Simulated scan of single mutants.
Amino acid sequence: MRELQFAVPVRIVPSPDQPVEEIYGVEQAMDFLSDWPTGKQGKLYQTAFNACFGASVGIMTSEEACRAFAAFCRASGIMAKDMMRPRKRGDEPEMLPI
């Protein structure tokens, strides 16, 4: 489903010994989140999961889900250093501060 794709994939490094991985949409983000360790799940995790789930059932947009997932990844320290900030429609993408 094209409406569940992110405008810009979220680039993550799940662990220091792994290569960069790209998350392209809501379903892939939900799969990643469902594998996240229970002991490390907090408020941002729940916000990201809820946003992705909401997008999957049509009550949120994929853009909102992407922003929530990216915020979770950034706060968790797994965001790739070259990741561009997810954008709102019509905005130019911008690099995330390192």
Rank of each mutant, 00 (worst) to 15 (best):
A51Q: 11
K40S: 11
R89P: 03
G77T: 12
P37C: 02
P86C: 02
E21F: 04
F69L: 00
M79D: 03
S62W: 12
E21T: 14
D82M: 03
Q41D: 00
W36A: 08
G54S: 12
A80Q: 09
S15G: 12
E64Y: 03
A70R: 15
E63N: 15
I23Q: 00
G39T: 06
P16Y: 03
K43E: 06
S34I: 03
A51D: 07
V13G: 11
R85Q: 04
E27A: 08
Q18N: 05
S76A: 07
P16R: 10
K88W: 01
P19R: 10
R85N: 01
I78V: 02
A51C: 08
G54H: 09
Q18K: 14
C52D: 08
G25M: 06
M60V: 00
C73I: 01
I23A: 00
L44Q: 12
G58D: 11
S56Q: 12
C73N: 13
W36R: 12
G58Y: 07
R85C: 00
G77W: 04
F69R: 13
P14C: 07
Q28C: 04
D82G: 09
F53Q: 15
Q46H: 09
P37W: 03
I78H: 05
T61W: 06
K43W: 02
M83G: 04
G58K: 06
M79A: 02
R11N: 10
D35H: 11
R74S: 06
E22F: 04
G42N: 03
Y24S: 14
I12C: 01
I59C: 15
D31I: 13
D31E: 14
M30R: 14
V13A: 09
A71H: 10
V26I: 03
M84W: 05
E63R: 15
G58C: 08
M83Y: 01
F49E: 13
S62F: 08
E21P: 03
A70P: 09
C52Q: 11
K88S: 04
S62E: 15
Q28Y: 05
Q18G: 05
I23L: 00
C73L: 02
G39Q: 07
N50A: 13
D35I: 07
P9T: 08
R67Q: 11
G25C: 09
L33D: 09
A80N: 11
A55I: 02
G77V: 03
D35F: 05
P37Y: 03
A71Q: 13
V20D: 02
R87Q: 05
N50F: 10
S15P: 06
A70G: 13
E27K: 13
S76E: 07
S56N: 11
P9I: 03
W36L: 08
G25K: 12
P37T: 12
P9D: 00
G25A: 10
C52I: 01
R74G: 02
G39H: 11
I23V: 08
V20C: 01
K43M: 08
E27D: 07
R87F: 02
F49S: 15
A75R: 14
D17H: 07
K81L: 05
F72S: 12
A48M: 03
F53H: 15
F69W: 04
S34P: 02
L44M: 13
S56C: 06
V20T: 08
I23E: 00
